[in-house]
Design a protein around this nucleic acid. Structure first.
Lengths: 326, 326
DNA sequence: CTGAAAGCGCTAACAA
DNA sequence: TTGTTAGCGCTTTCAG
């Protein structure tokens, strides 16, 4: 008698109603036998894999774990499992990973790996696999994007520096291939033009990556080039830490001789000496929101294309009044 | 003609050899049509899901991301995808997650969530789902375990402290429900008994968790109880940071008044003031190894039950000669 | 409300 | 070497 009936009993959402009595009987039998419906068979029939892909550039980057947690929590709560893939910041691996995820019939995909020009992500745009971008966006795409409102954060930071009396501000940041770099840089330029006038253009230097080593190198070179600034706005906290190290190595003190600020409010940057002034936002919320947007797309909604979550300037000891206006 | 032939052509490992010519033809056709074999159908037929579960207690804990990366890399390289699940350190969620992973027919499972008494993990032991434990072990189980050789690390640390002249050592650590806590504590006790004699038993205090807050509280209480020690060995770096904060708040300086050491060598603990002396090991290798052990089990090997990877004592500024022997 | 039957797309065994 | 056939375990029509 069973096959169909049992299926209906175990899955109340299915068409064809059923007596509570038989349903209970079936459920009990199922439990007694330790029966678990085979997802492969179900998947084959329903054309739904129950899985979504989560692609990150490098899980080791402290910004990502809370994002992934937020994604995982939210998706898991909706009955979807997360296939995690790490590309190690490599576009080829990104392409391979996305292909594999498609081959595995993910129902959707969340990408934190986008470079502004990523061919893989562009291909996804307009494709039929629902995709959502987090943190990093592509240029001119129409894929839903969930990020932090870096521009507001940077503007608040510049305002803070200007209020302290800074006039010469340098920006040492990451690769221009990332949207985060550009968003922050543009916001910084705009804020400076706005608050200090158009003739106070900041010195801007791009590093190869958002790492401590890059920050160190960028700072060393900037100082070597006789770059004059009373404040350095780093592209993120890692770069800021590199800055701090290079400044110390050069015999300069922060914040007495020069102020430094970061971005992201990574764990432990509040314990540094000096504690780092930085732009904070809830990474976890970013993940949750990205997952919600994907869930919306899976439900057939047409999501708002760009969602920006609030940032907050966290003022700590690494920014202070400049010793003298140069 | 095709169905079977095509399958063979696309999957060279299958039984029944095939002409290179037809194989090529099929592959070309497949590419032209954008054909991707359906994993659900394949799965249904082969009884292999191509997926393994990776269960972590809290991805936000800085020790885990490199472990997960190592796992993901290795498994992905072997053609397996990782279903990531986070239990938020909750045993109920652990049970639910494992059940769901089993329902999804994972081929294996890697757990970083084990508490010493976890009923869920015990049930896995002896079950038919190949499982591997990383970092955290259960008591008296026979599941393969991959961890760092914490005992050696702690012993080296104690030796370092003794050589500096410390005689009164306190151990402020995490919950006794975790194997890591116990391993480190036992090693500390043994090393002290060994190097200082049996009458120098350390004061040991357990906190509710391995967090900064717990470390702070533990230290505050320890000081309040007139605990006398010239060195504190913290259960991990988080606890050590809490220690440092509480000491500072109490007007004590590290390392002048008291030495502090941690465990794990988390990112940025080398940038603290003072830089933290700690026991380091390669989290990434741990992940790689755990994945290899699982791969071995999947291949039918009977793995060595406990694998301990080397630790290394990293001496930094937070440990120094005690001001006076109390 | 429940039983019966077909079929999702693949692979494994067997036949040719 | 290739074609054929059956069936993995479910869901979903369609009958009863």
């Amino acid at each position: 008698m069973h096959p169909g009936t049992a299926s209906r009993a175990l899955n109340p959402a299915l068409p064809g109603r059923i007596t509570e009595k038989t349903a209970r009987k079936v459920r009990e039998a199922a439990r007694a036998l330790g029966y678990l419906p085979d997802p492969a068979a179900r998947s084959l029939r329903t054309r739904r894999s129950g899985v979504v892909g989560v692609v990150v550039p490098d899980l080791t980057n402290p910004v990502l774990p809370p994002i992934v947690r937020g994604i995982e929590e939210t998706l898991w709560g909706a009955g979807l499992a997360c296939l995690l893939a790490d590309t190690d910041n490599d576009e080829e691996r990104e392409a391979a990973v996305v292909a594999e995820l498609q081959a595995r019939r993910c129902e959707g995909i969340i990408l934190a790996t986008a470079t502004r020009a990523s061919a893989t992500v562009k291909r996804l745009d307009g494709g039929d696999l629902p995709a959502v971008l987090v943190t990093r966006d592509i240029d001119g795409g129409s894929l839903p994007f969930v990020g932090a409102d870096d521009a507001s954060g940077v503007r608040a930071l510049v305002q803070h520096l200007v209020e302290l009396g800074h006039v010469r501000i340098a920006h040492l940041t990451g690769p221009a291939s990332l949207s985060t770099t550009i968003t922050r840089e543009m916001a910084l330029r705009a804020a400076i033009a706005d608050l200090l006038g158009p003739d106070r253009e900041p010195t801007v230097r791009h590093g190869a990556s958002f790492t401590i080593a890059a920050g160190r190198q960028l700072t060393r070179r900037f100082l070597g080039d006789h770059g004059a600034a009373t404040a350095i706005v780093a592209g993120n906290d890692m770069v800021a830490i590199g800055c701090l190290e290079a400044l110390t190595a050069a015999g300069l003190r922060c914040p007495e001789d020069i102020s430094v600020a970061g971005h992201n409010d990574m764990p432990l940057v509040d314990k540094l000496q000096p504690p780092l002034t930085t732009v904070a936002f809830s990474q976890h919320s970013l993940g949750v929101r990205a997952a919600q947007v994907l869930l919306g797309r899976l439900a057939g909604e047409d999501p708002a294309e760009r969602q920006l979550l609030p940032t907050e300037l966290v003022v700590r000891g690494s920014t202070a009044t400049p010793r003298a206006t140069l």
